[in-house]
Structure formats: structure tokens, C-alpha cells
Design a protein around this nucleic acid. Structure first.
Length: 330
DNA sequence: ATATATAAATGAT
DNA sequence: CATCATTTATATA
């Protein structure tokens, strides 16, 4: 289609206003994706060259705590575009399960949307997108994984590389969470799974709505009767769009963190959280895909409804976005 | 089975 | 009422 202005177009201001972000023609495709994911628009990629946009504030004045807070990391002028791009292009899952409370079955909707990319260090993706063994460079046996690992799409891989440079660490996994509103949350936990190794570094990005991030030291193991320890007050950080926190050292083994539910002001706005981490062994891959993808359906952002809607995997109807040339892999 | 994890429910300010 | 801290219930390893 031609970009020449027509008389018709002249009287349609909506047409000229629309493309705020230049659409990228290329996409990341992979057999494990429900549909191809567009590459990052170069306006965003270019701006990311200036990241980190601020020097980090070190937060290490408490026992076993070692973290850096970049406010922001993503340059201000593209932070909103990046948020919208990712929310629009990614496929999400809302893991649900049922439990019995007393006698009544209740359905639990995991209070956030999730999606995940990556594979642990024992494997990597070849240029054609196939999984290879790190050790032998041979194809991994078909039954090695119960899940189907997904390579990072280009748009995340760009961010990954920049983050690796800042952190002085390498990452092979990317977890993406979407907190649709103040009712979405995650309760206190640590990212201290064994498959991450002893002192995992985790880079966590915030985009979209501001949310509180609470951290508290793990309770000391209860010893016999005597020492009732006074629990220290949780540390509260307000995470804004474009911020990044790098958690390292002994932080994960000794601290818990959470995103609590929030009412009021920002409660209607969505927040995307992106974490980069490194899984060392197979178990990490299985775990992450099990708990962040599960077996439920796909959700996508509906710009008209301004909410996540379940996405029908009807044949051949891929992205609402522009069809482009297909790159072989991320 | 003991321990850990997670979200809901409850109680307090 | 919103937030915070604690407890409860269940699941899973």
C-alpha cells in the first residue's frame, strides 16, 4: 500500500495520528510461540542505548541486603512506549487451580498474568531455533523437557544484553508479570530456588503503574522457647515505570519480597514486571514453565476494552499487527 | 512426613 | 476504609 496522501486521507486526521510508534516489520518466530512477536521498534531500541538513564542507588544498609535501584533505568522518553509495546504484543497466562477449603471447592486465580521465556544453562537455542545441548552441541532428546522452552524474542533479548552489561552477570531466563490493577499481587517470597545457584543475581524491571515493593528479612528460625525476636519493619520501595532493581549477593537467601494489593489511586492501572535471571539446571526450566504458563488459555491485551481478554487460538489468525518478514529465530 | 510455599482470611491500627 | 501483620488452609516437594 502506498503512503501517498490521497484526498480521502487528507480529511481523515485519525489516519495520520495513529502510528505513534513506528511499527517494526520484522518478527521473532518460534514453534513454541502461539504467534510471532514483533521486533522492538527502532525508536525504542535506539533510546535503550542510553540506558541506564540514572545512576543506581545502593540499598545495602541492612544485614544480608544488597540491591541497586535505578530510577529510572529505561530512558524517560520511551518508558511508556516500551510498556505499551510489551503489553500489546505479548501473550499471557493466568494460572488457575482449585483447592478445597473445608468442604467447599474454591477456584484460585493466580493474582497476576504471567509469561516466560528462556532455557537453563544445559541447553541453548541454535540459529534455526532448535534446542541444542550445551555440552555436546547436539540436539537435545525430545523427551528431555516436559515443557517446550521458548527463546527470548528479540524485543527482550535487546533488554537482556543491556542489562547484562550493567549487572556484570549473564541471564538465560526472562519472567514477565502483568499486574492488571491493585487487586493483582504477589505474596512474600524469595527467588531462592536451588536451580538458580547460591547467590543469584536477579534484575527486575517495572513498567506502567507504580506499585509498592515490600522487603523484609526472613524470620530467624525459631529456637527453643527463649528468644522472641522483634521483627524489623519491612522496607518499602515505590517502583515507578522504567525503574530497575538489581538484587544480588545474599539478598535472596535472606530476604522476602512482595507486591501487596493496593486500592485507590493507581489501582486501575496495569504494571509490567520483567525479571532476568539465570537457571543452571533442567529443573529450573520445568519449574518456570509449569508455574508461569501452566495449561490454561492465552490472554492478550484488548486495546478497545482496555483489559486482558482470552485469546482464541483460531487457525491462521495471528497477530492483529502488521504481517512482516519472518525471522528464523529470536 | 516434614517442610516450604502461596494466597485467602482475619485481626489490628 | 485502607493498610499492615499475622494466621489459616491447602498444596506440593
Amino acid at each position: 500500500m502506498s503512503n501517498k496522501r490521497t484526498l480521502d486521507g487528507f480529511f481523515k486526521p485519525a489516519e495520520s495520528k495513529r502510528p505513534k510508534i513506528e511499527a517494526s516489520q520484522e518478527v521473532s518466530s518460534h514453534a513454541s510461540y502461539p504467534y510471532p512477536i514483533p521486533h522492538l521498534p527502532c525508536s525504542i531500541t535506539d533510546a535503550l542505548g542510553f540506558a541506564p538513564a540514572a545512576e543506581a542507588k545502593a540499598i545495602n544498609d541492612q544485614p544480608d541486603l544488597d540491591l541497586l535501584h535505578f530510577q529510572p533505568y529505561i530512558p524517560k522518553d520511551v518508558q511508556a512506549d516500551l510498556f505499551k509495546f510489551l503489553r500489546r504484543e505479548f501473550f499471557f497466562y493466568r494460572v488457575q487451580y482449585t483447592i478445597k477449603r473445608g468442604s467447599i471447592q474454591t477456584q484460585i486465580n493466580t493474582p497476576r498474568y504471567t509469561t516466560v521465556f528462556g532455557v537453563d544453562e544445559t541447553s541453548y537455542f541454535g540459529v534455526d531455533g532448535s534446542l541444542l545441548e550445551s555440552k555436546t552441541k547436539q540436539p537435545v532428546p525430545k523427551d528431555r523437557y516436559k515443557c517446550m522452552p521458548r527463546p527470548l524474542p528479540q524485543c527482550l533479548d535487546v533488554l537482556r544484553k543491556i542489562t547484562e552489561g550493567t549487572a556484570g552477570e549473564t541471564f538465560n531466563f526472562c519472567l514477565v508479570n502483568y499486574y492488571a490493577n491493585g487487586n493483582d499481587s504477589i505474596s512474600y517470597h524469595s527467588d531462592d530456588e536451588r536451580f538458580l545457584g547460591p547467590n543469584p543475581a536477579i534484575a527486575s524491571f517495572s513498567l506502567g503503574a507504580k506499585r509498592d515493593f515490600l522487603m523484609k528479612h526472613k524470620p530467624a528460625p525459631m529456637s527453643m522457647s527463649e528468644p522472641a525476636k522483634p521483627e524489623a519493619k519491612p522496607l518499602k520501595l515505590l517502583l515507578a515505570s522504567g525503574d530497575m532493581i538489581l538484587m544480588r549477593g545474599t539478598t535472596q537467601t535472606n530476604w522476602l519480597h512482595s507486591i501487596p494489593k493496593r486500592k485507590g489511586a493507581d489501582s486501575g492501572a496495569g504494571r509490567i514486571n520483567i525479571t532476568f535471571r539465570k537457571a543452571l539446571v533442567r529443573g529450573g526450566t520445568e519449574n518456570y514453565y509449569q508455574y508461569n504458563v501452566g495449561s490454561g488459555g492465552i490472554f492478550r491485551w484488548d486495546n478497545k476494552k482496555q483489559e486482558m481478554v482470552s485469546w482464541k487460538a483460531t487457525e491462521g489468525s495471528p497477530t492483529p499487527g502488521p504481517p512482516g518478514t519472518v525471522s528464523l529465530t529470536a
